[in-house]
Simulated scan of single mutants.
Amino acid sequence: MISKIKSFFNFKTKQSLVLVLLVLIGTKINAQDNRSFQIFQFPANKIPTIDGNSDDWKIVPKNYAVGMDQLWDDSGKQPKADPKNLDVSVKVGWVKGLNRLYFLYEAYDNYWDFSQPGLHNDTFELIVDADQSGGPFIDRFHPNPSLTNTMDAYFSYHGVHAQNYHIFTPAVDKDWTMVWGSQPWIKNLPYANASYHYDFKPGQAGKLTLEFWITPFDYAGNDPSRAIESILKENRNIGLCWAIIDYDDVNKTENNGFWNLSKEHKMYGNASYSLPFKLMPLEKQFKKEIEAKWDFKVVNMTKREVAFIDESEGEISTWNWDFGDGTTSTQQNPTHQYKEAGKYVVILKILGPKGTSQLSKVWDVAVK
């Protein structure tokens, strides 16, 4: 009887330990997921020029900046951030209609280490998983053990559904970034561009400004003709993460800190540890109080049937469509059937408490 009681308590103790472990693991995972960030939408007439000058970014509110207060040194070498040692700010932007992510990286370092030709270089390591597919994406993390650390996995898997940019800060006598995967073409125009501004030499202190943009991909293999760009849409989240690798002595092989935005060190090869960044709408000061916008889709070319889609912004009371063939509609999203083939000038007029707006498109709508 006594042995049965002992067995029962041992079983309950093990259950409790398992429960505690699960709670701790869950706490770590939840800690990874409880933060989110924003990506600033640049107006189409204020797209940043990639010249290493941060003036274009003055319109970005301060709340978009991600600083050292969001990073932690998961190497354990630096117990807390010290702005006299390293101070970093990152802003991310986008432009509606372009599948590009713009970055402003500003950093002060008390010792800039960039004199060697290899990976021993102060680095901004960026992870992009724009469709939030998640999961491991480098060859050493391949779920099939027979493919782990193989060239087959490198070419077919590494960096394909998420990308890792190992950006040198600064890059001297080397390309601006190493793309960790078999798709180095993504770091060049027309897929990316970068520019620096700094006035220090190796081993000196100073401030660096790095401006760049990249194109995220849902699929990016060795062959660019098969690549699929990520489609960036307003109010959607994408997966991003980064780390700052800080070297402070050219004679030391190890870094002086791995400042990670993620709570998980292996974020560099597992997109599940990225963080949600929201593609924000235009800030209020860049919006018109009322603006007519519209698009269309040919529903049936044989019947010359066209669906018109209102995309106007602002508070709207009435819509007035002129289809260019002598007919009109006051519906918000009308469908119209043209009697004759032709190219038409279509006009949308809207009215609201803040005024009126009109948009015409010349010969966009054509039916045969």
Rank of each mutant, 00 (worst) to 15 (best):
residue 167 I to G: 03
residue 140 R to E: 15
residue 259 W to H: 02
residue 104 L to I: 14
residue 253 T to V: 00
residue 241 C to W: 08
residue 44 A to C: 03
residue 137 F to I: 00
residue 292 A to H: 00
residue 92 V to H: 13
residue 358 Q to P: 00
residue 85 N to L: 10
residue 270 N to A: 00
residue 368 K to T: 08
residue 302 T to D: 08
residue 180 W to Y: 05
residue 186 I to T: 10
residue 368 K to M: 10
residue 126 L to N: 01
residue 8 F to K: 09
residue 340 E to F: 14
residue 357 S to D: 10
residue 174 K to L: 06
residue 325 D to H: 10
residue 228 I to D: 13
residue 341 A to L: 13
residue 148 T to D: 08
residue 110 N to L: 09
residue 341 A to V: 11
residue 114 F to E: 07
residue 161 H to S: 02
residue 292 A to C: 01
residue 172 V to L: 09
residue 351 L to C: 00
residue 203 G to T: 05
residue 184 P to V: 07
residue 87 D to Q: 14
residue 240 L to Q: 02
residue 177 T to W: 08
residue 274 S to G: 09
residue 348 L to N: 03
residue 54 S to T: 02
residue 83 P to D: 01
residue 321 W to F: 15
residue 143 P to G: 02
residue 340 E to G: 07
residue 208 L to I: 11
residue 270 N to V: 01
residue 46 K to R: 14
residue 169 T to D: 05
residue 244 I to S: 14
residue 116 Q to R: 11
residue 202 P to C: 15
residue 31 A to V: 08
residue 206 G to S: 07
residue 196 Y to E: 10
residue 1 M to C: 00
residue 126 L to Y: 09
residue 265 H to Q: 10
residue 91 K to E: 01
residue 297 K to H: 04
residue 253 T to M: 02
residue 49 T to W: 04
residue 102 Y to H: 06
residue 55 D to S: 04
residue 181 G to R: 12
residue 133 S to T: 13
residue 108 Y to L: 00
residue 318 T to G: 04
residue 348 L to A: 03
residue 273 Y to M: 02
residue 139 D to I: 06
residue 230 S to T: 06
residue 333 N to E: 12
residue 59 I to K: 05
residue 237 N to Y: 06
residue 191 Y to T: 02
residue 203 G to C: 13
residue 285 Q to M: 05
residue 42 F to C: 08
residue 328 T to N: 11
residue 64 Y to S: 08
residue 137 F to S: 01
residue 356 T to L: 09
residue 320 N to E: 15
residue 35 R to Q: 06
residue 68 M to G: 14
residue 56 D to Q: 04
residue 311 E to R: 15
residue 285 Q to T: 00
residue 34 N to G: 00
residue 139 D to L: 13
residue 313 E to S: 15
residue 322 D to Y: 00
residue 320 N to V: 10
residue 113 D to G: 03
residue 24 L to W: 02
residue 335 T to N: 11
residue 254 E to I: 06
residue 89 S to V: 02
residue 146 S to W: 03
residue 95 V to R: 11
residue 124 F to K: 03
residue 148 T to C: 04
residue 273 Y to N: 01
residue 300 N to W: 05
residue 214 I to W: 13
residue 239 G to P: 06
residue 278 K to C: 01
residue 212 F to G: 10
residue 316 I to E: 12
residue 17 L to H: 09
residue 144 N to M: 11
residue 121 N to Q: 01
residue 24 L to P: 05
residue 87 D to N: 11
residue 363 W to A: 11
residue 172 V to M: 06
residue 138 I to L: 12
residue 5 I to F: 03
residue 138 I to Q: 14
residue 120 H to C: 10
residue 112 W to K: 07
residue 243 A to M: 02
residue 98 L to M: 14
residue 326 G to R: 07
residue 368 K to Q: 01
residue 200 F to P: 12
residue 48 P to I: 03
residue 325 D to Q: 09
residue 279 L to S: 09
residue 148 T to K: 13
residue 305 E to A: 11
residue 7 S to C: 09
residue 108 Y to S: 01
residue 96 K to S: 14
residue 281 P to L: 03
residue 167 I to N: 06
residue 152 D to Q: 13
residue 330 T to D: 15
residue 175 D to K: 13
residue 49 T to C: 07
residue 105 Y to H: 15
residue 298 V to Q: 12
residue 260 N to H: 00
residue 24 L to S: 07
residue 215 T to R: 06
residue 266 K to G: 14
residue 200 F to W: 12
residue 256 N to A: 15
residue 44 A to E: 03
residue 39 I to L: 12
residue 237 N to Q: 12
residue 300 N to H: 07
residue 34 N to R: 13
residue 151 M to N: 11
residue 311 E to T: 13
